[in-house]
Nucleic acid binder design. Structure first.
Length: 420
DNA sequence: TCTGGGGTCCTAGGACCC
DNA sequence: TCTGGGGTCCTAGGACCC
């Protein structure tokens, strides 16, 4: 046993739960194991069907033939998750339900149950922080973990600790996950995908050329469809292709910040820390209607939905203890174009009526000729409610007492202004 | 076969202040 | 009277992620 320990090398893990929502559903409905199942934007119809529990039984006793099938589903919505058997039919997340029904009509469809997923999310994250306290939340089914100073975090490059975490999560929840351990978040994120499901991948700095450079640019967290398309136009397909471009060339073609970032990424460099706590920037609620609605013809219906959204945002803010002063709306038209408007008021609020009033002003500034498919309400520029002064502004050094903000009447459609 | 809901961050122009 | 620059806030849109 050597008494002198070497300086630990930076080891960052990315953990991704395997088919999270679908796996949680399979715990409730084990009779669906091995079958193609999708979780989707299903509505009441699907909800009712799966609650048909036999007398004296549990959810596991619901007979297979009573589960709703994709082919019987009518309406809007997308797939949130699909089980592995369903994926074999080409079904994937974010796919429209109608398209998925064509690919696999006999797939079983289940409604999304966020409350249940959140319960499991809390449980697996608690398991992790008991073992490795420096954890960054990246949503219900994903986290980053800093292994560097954790006991066992250096052994086999982090593989030993990763195995322990996998095992502990499985014992506590019955769920599997995949883990990538690497010198930083960027590589760890890519590595967690290498061995799915229930896999572990350990990557070292020296593996950059052999393991990372062959991957398509799209695998980089932050390079989406648009950036990828532009890269492809310049014959840059893999991360290796990207690495071979001059930094200055990237800056000239993608802008100062993005170009420099791409260069760093291609060479596997990323110093971002694992952040354990962060404050929310905004809270919002939005809804896609069952059918397109028109500002004039469906005025009453829209007005009711609008008020409801404001109330929900207000509830969210109050429950979580925040107030905000930038209030905005979002519309999606039938052609899928999006319009947003917002207004910053001179005091912070979490009051449904106040939000509704300002959001109503915003609505007057946006064109309302086209049918709408979505309406949303957002509150930003948030602050903890407890730090609020008595007059509704920030007590000291705040930004609340700035210039008077713009009222209504600028731009937009004056013709439909009185609707809301 | 039309494509959810909840977020973050960036950009870019204009207003306004120093 | 003209010219200039830095810094911050506000607003709209868009890319991207889970």
């Amino acid at each position: 046993m050597a008494a002198v320990t070497a300086t630990p090398i930076r080891r960052i893990a990315h953990l991704d739960m395997d088919a999270f929502y679908a796996s949680v559903e399979l715990l409730r409905y084990p009779q669906l194991k091995g079958l193609p199942v999708v979780i989707g934007g299903a509505r009441r119809k699907v909800d009712e069907a799966v609650r048909d529990v036999p007398e004296g039984g549990t959810l596991a006793d619901i007979p297979l033939h009573t589960f709703p099938l994709l082919k019987d589903y009518v309406g809007r919505g997308v797939i949130t998750t699909a089980t592995y058997p369903a994926r074999q039919f080409g079904i994937g997340s974010a796919m429209g339900l109608m398209k998925a029904a064509k690919l696999c009509p006999q797939a079983i469809i289940l409604p999304v149950d966020f409350d249940e997923y959140r319960r499991y999310s809390r449980r697996f994250k608690q398991v992790i922080t008991e073992i490795a306290p420096v954890m960054e939340d990246r949503g219900v089914d994903e986290v980053y973990i800093d292994f560097t100073d954790v006991a066992g975090g250096q052994r086999e490059g982090g593989r030993v600790l990763a195995r322990l975490i996998q095992k502990s999560i499985f014992e506590a929840t019955g769920l599997t996950c995949s883990i990538g351990v690497a010198p930083n978040k960027l590589i760890a994120k890519m590595a967690s995908e290498f061995n799915k499901p229930n896999g572990i991948s350990v990557i070292f700095e020296d593996d950059l050329q052999s393991r990372i450079w062959p991957l398509p640019c799209r695998k980089v967290n932050g390079i989406g469809p648009k950036a990828d398309e532009k890269l492809q136009r310049h014959e840059i397909r893999t991360i290796g292709d990207l690495a071979l471009r001059e930094r200055d060339w990237l800056i000239a073609n993608f802008g100062k910040a993005t170009g420099a970032w791409m260069h760093e990424v291609a060479w596997g460099r990323d110093e971002r820390p694992v952040v354990t706590e962060s404050e929310p920037v905004s809270m919002s609620r939005e809804t896609t209607f069952d059918r397109d609605l028109h500002a004039v013809r469906h005025r009453a219906e829209l007005g009711a939905i609008f008020t409801r959204l404001c109330e929900k945002v207000a509830e969210d803010l109050q429950r979580k203890g925040y107030v905000g002063k930038t209030i905005g709306i979002k519309l999606r038209y039938d052609d899928f174009k999006i319009a947003t408007r917002d207004q910053t008021i001179d005091h912070f609020t979490a009051d449904a009526k106040a939000i509704r009033r300002v959001a109503g002003q915003c609505l007057k500034r946006v064109p309302l000729e086209r049918p709408l498919r979505l309406l949303g309400v957002r509150v930003g520029a948030l602050m903890k409610a407890g730090e609020l002064g008595a007059d509704g502004t920030k007590p000291a050094g705040g930004t609340g007492a700035g210039r008077p903000s713009q009222g209504d009447g600028r731009g937009g459609s004056a013709r439909t202004a009185s609707l809301f």
